[in-house]
Design a protein around this nucleic acid. Structure first.
Ligand SMILES: NC(=O)c1ccc[n+]([C@@H]2O[C@H](COP(=O)([O-])OP(=O)(O)OC[C@H]3O[C@@H](n4cnc5c(N)ncnc54)[C@H](O)[C@@H]3O)[C@@H](O)[C@H]2O)c1
Ligand SMILES: NC(=O)c1ccc[n+]([C@@H]2O[C@H](COP(=O)([O-])OP(=O)(O)OC[C@H]3O[C@@H](n4cnc5c(N)ncnc54)[C@H](O)[C@@H]3O)[C@@H](O)[C@H]2O)c1
Lengths: 230, 230
DNA sequence: AGGCGCTTGTGAAGAGGTGCACAAATCGCG
DNA sequence: CGCGATTTGTGCACCTCTTCACAAGCGCCT
């Protein structure tokens, strides 16, 4: 489930706050989900709660980290050390979440050799060697969109089977390779859609615009993420 | 639907490539979705295709932009001009997607006054004035997690009803305010989960680990995003 | 030791998304 | 003008995910 990482983050926060155990209700609040959904999720990985008490925070953290394969740090290769790549490379919050940026790669030779956060930028030609040396298991693409597919192909060719893509384009990869995409413009556009919907609802309860604003079919807000009330 | 922005991006790419019309199959391929799903999505906003021909690219772009409320540029305020904030502020790809970063705000007075991409960083105390001056409709939070809730409260207080949150925490907001979260560590952890699953499947067809790797319930890959084959 | 309150785990119902398959519609061409 | 090729729009079945509601289990207090 894609909610496990969210639970994990909430559990770490609870552990830091000194909680030994947590009820499904408490953890659900901290993670922003329904408590029944959370219990069902946790039951899928083998039910480690105690009725009447709740879940042992430390034990549950171990459980989830084991399921997610975070028992040891995973090495990540970052391809494209530009605007966004610099921010990612300079971010120190990945280590506590189980990841280590182990390599920085770029095609621009004028960037090669630059040091960021103690890591030196290497040329993308060295990808194969770097992946082997550092046991890279995940590749992050932060290049412009036109280069993203080529970079993905190279990553796949050297054996990387998980890719996080920041370029606004769809990647074609063979079966067995997982790709996740982060497109900030899409997130903004979804918010814009909600803004637009809210504006036309408050301003025009009946169809009042030039005919296009009010949708006939309904088109309710059917996104993945949701906001919870106060 | 949250897929509309993806369609829009694919349509712009097709328009740049000179296509006048596109079939549902072609657009579905470019957007990485099923063609039936795409047709059903488009039919929800009023069916503007011609049978036997396909969809008019320019018309469909106008349609989707109208639905998303992108007919005019939306002004965005970015709060927290640190590591990540700099990358976002320096990114010029938002303008072509319908957004304009109209304000940079930070609590650190030593950052106030700094210029990025022609924009001056202002103190977060000026949030109220800036939001009114620039007709801000969306707020982006790129502060550390402990400050995110306070910033969100301030944004809501000055009338912002859509928030994009990069801090790894859940935000509580009143009803009517939309929040979307981007957590890169969560994306990496989902990839890690798939890596872990692939590894245990290839190495141990039957239960062979210390009992925790192989999940009893099944726990198939049930994420939002998916990879398509070549 | 027994009862009581609290919490988990889960069955079942409901809702919504997905994809197939096909009828309806349009264009181009003879 | 008529026909075939092509593509849209959609009814329908399937399936997953979500949520409610409640029995079973556990600890604590008396
Ligand atoms: N900067 C942001 O805030 C932001 C926001 C949303 C999306 N994005 C996307 O992220 C990607 C990167 O954005 P950016 O602002 O960092 O761009 P950028 O131009 O600053 O950096 C791109 C880097 O990739 C390198 N590169 C180009 N081709 C390469 C190749 N074939 N192999 C390896 N490296 C290569 C370039 O040398 C450059 O250093 C883009 O696709 C952009 O659309 C960025
Ligand atoms: N940098 C990354 O690549 C990256 C990756 C994933 C997540 N994040 C998250 O993004 C957020 C920002 O990361 P960063 O690396 O830019 O951190 P950063 O420390 O470099 O920048 C944070 C900025 O926010 C400002 N700030 C702090 N409190 C504020 C307040 N109350 N109001 C306004 N501004 C305030 C600080 O002055 C600073 O300039 C963090 O929550 C981080 O976890 C960053």
């Amino acid at each position: 489930m894609s909610r496990l990482p969210e639970y994990l983050r909430a559990l770490h926060a609870l552990a830091d706050a000194g909680h030994e155990t947590v009820s499904s209700e408490g953890l659900a609040n901290a993670a922003g989900v329904n408590s029944a959904k959370l219990r069902k999720d946790l039951s899928h990985l083998g039910s480690y709660g105690t009725r009447g008490v709740g879940y042992d925070v430390a034990l549950l953290i171990d459980q989830i980290e084991s399921v997610l394969g975070l028992t040891q740090c995973r090495a990540v290769a970052l391809v494209g050390v530009g605007n966004l790549g610099h921010a990612l490379a300079g971010y120190d919050g990945f280590a506590s979440r189980g990841f280590r940026i182990a390599a920085l790669l770029d095609a621009d030779r004028s960037r090669v050799g630059e040091q960021i956060n103690g890591l030196v930028v290497r040329h993308v030609d060295e990808l194969s060697r770097v992946v082997a040396e550092e046991s890279i298991s995940i590749g992050v693409i932060a290049t412009p969109a036109p280069a993203a597919q080529a970079v993905a192909d190279e990553l796949v060719a050297v054996g990387v089977t998980s890719i996080l893509n920041f370029a606004p384009c769809v990647l074609s990869v063979p079966d067995g390779v997982d790709v996740r995409k982060v497109d900030l413009a899409i997130e903004l556009q979804i918010l814009s859609f909600h803004e637009h919907r809210k504006a036309s609802l408050t301003a025009l309860p009946a169809t009042g615009g030039p005919g296009l604003a009010a949708l006939p079919g309904g088109l309710a807000a059917t996104d993945t993420q949701e906001a919870i009330g106060t």
